[in-house]
Amino acid sequence: MTAHPILDVRGLHKRFGDHHVLKGIDFTVEPGERVAIIGGSGSGKSTFLRCLNFMEVLSEGEIRLDGTRIGLERKGTVTYPEKQLCQVRERLGMVFQQFNLFPHMSVLDNVMEGLVTVKGLPKPEARRIAEAELAKVGLTDKHSAWPGRLSGGQQQRVAIARALSMQPEILLFDEPTSSLDPELVGEVLRVIKQLAEEKRTMLLVTHELGFAYHFATKVIFLADGVFHEVGTPDEVLKTPSKPRTQDFLRRFGEFAF
């Protein structure tokens, strides 16, 4: 155990106008942890993940990355300088439900983009890293393809390679298989599983409860903007203690562990 968690969230609130989505969340992540976040649609699980790398700005609360507070507090108001947010996002890789690849760049250029533009690496070195990441997700033969010509599963694997290329300390997956055809889900989950075997620190928002059970070291059931139940996969998914969790799992139907 390290002296402090890699990610430390205190009193996180998020409001969209009058809509109070997240109502005071405390949360820590230790290096090597794999956290699955589950919950009904509209429960705020994606919003929670998106707050961590400031895709959404917090309404209240604070986040520490490796012990360092993100944002500057002056006279009670917190500002988030662009430079600091960029550094934070560089350290937290994110994979989106809709992939968000850059359609005007080839697959290889998509993966090289962050390395060249953000990290300032020379192109040959960026290319070497990008090729290695693409090999890892099994897309060596697609370097020069346009993203729009790939299947959803392939696009998501490119997106994972793009996130990995930055050597992030934590990976955030926001429903990475939710927009895929059923037959393409497996290839993406296999890549994520492989990353789990490498002991990477990861947070996964998902509806794939069966996968979450095998993937996670910790499962969080989010409901009504709070962490309703937190525990090991067995505790939360097999023997949930709270009626609300039991109800959610029952409504989700049968799934095999």
Partner: peptide
């Protein structure tokens, strides 16, 4: 919006995102 988010998540500044994406 996803294009902005894709770039931001990589750590790109607003200016770089505009220029590159």
């Amino acid at each position: 919006r996803g294009q902005w988010e894709g770039g931001r998540a990589l750590g790109m500044t607003h200016a770089a995102l505009m220029r590159r994406v």
